[in-house]
């Protein structure tokens, strides 16, 4: 496929894979706005506990800090995966992707544990506006990470089948970009929701 792409790339001015990369960047802009809107609602509703539990009563920072650390590390390992790919090292690439996915999975399981615990302590999504906004914002980020996991596994299988070519290269670049993006979003979640919540 990649080899006879030239036929399509008239005068080389639109390369198919570069085109897809650009589309993904624009998609990330829309995702930024999506999260921006969720952050705005969180900030507006912050403190509206309707007499129920407040965030500072229930947040447990050690778990959250562990989540943060895990996700930051996974962002780093996804970067290592891209580096291996650029060296043409398929095994290294798949290996680092597996590490990234495992870290992502442990992030998700920690988050689920945190949610279950909160619900048991009397803070469910229907408890008050404060908690509705909390679960929606943090949950949307978690959903993004979960989708990323499934997608990463699909890419690993494709790498196994096709090796590194222009298509799989673009896919790895995109998932890594997506992963860094989620990392940045998490830094905002950590600051605005957790740090400012307990302070």
């Amino acid at each position: 496929m990649a080899d006879n792409r030239n036929a399509h790339a008239h005068e080389g001015h639109h390369d198919l894979e570069a085109l897809r990369m650009m589309g993904f960047w624009i998609f990330l802009i829309t995702d930024c706005i999506l999260f921006g809107t969720l952050f705005a609602t969180y900030v507006v509703l912050n403190g509206n506990t309707a007499g129920g539990p407040t965030v500072s009563e229930l947040f447990e920072m050690p778990g959250v800090i562990a989540e943060t650390f895990i996700l930051l590390t996974s962002s780093f390992t996804s970067g290592l995966a891209v580096l291996s790919m650029n060296k043409g090292n398929r095994k290294g690439l798949i290996g680092w992707l597996i590490v990234t996915a495992l870290l992502g999975a442990s992030f998700i399981s920690l988050e689920i544990t945190e949610f279950v615990k909160l619900v048991h302590e009397g803070a469910a999504i229907s408890t008050s506006a404060q908690w509705s906004a909390f679960y929606t914002l943090v949950g949307t980020h978690g959903l993004h990470v979960s989708v990323g996991l499934v997608w990463m596994i699909a890419i690993m299988i494709q790498l196994g089948r096709h090796g590194i070519n222009s298509v799989t290269r673009r896919k790895v670049n995109i998932i890594s970009l997506y992963w860094h993006f989620l990392d940045v979003v998490w830094i905002f979640v950590f600051t605005i929701v957790y740090l400012m919540g307990v302070m």
Partner: peptide, 24 residues
């Protein structure tokens, strides 16, 4: 996002836009 929040209100009993529970 707006429609999703309205749906979460209706479906999961959240309080984004309700009169009670601190909604706005």
């Amino acid at each position: 996002v707006t429609l999703a929040l309205l749906f979460i209100d209706r479906y999961l009993g959240a309080h984004f836009f309700t009169l009670d529970g601190g909604g706005n």
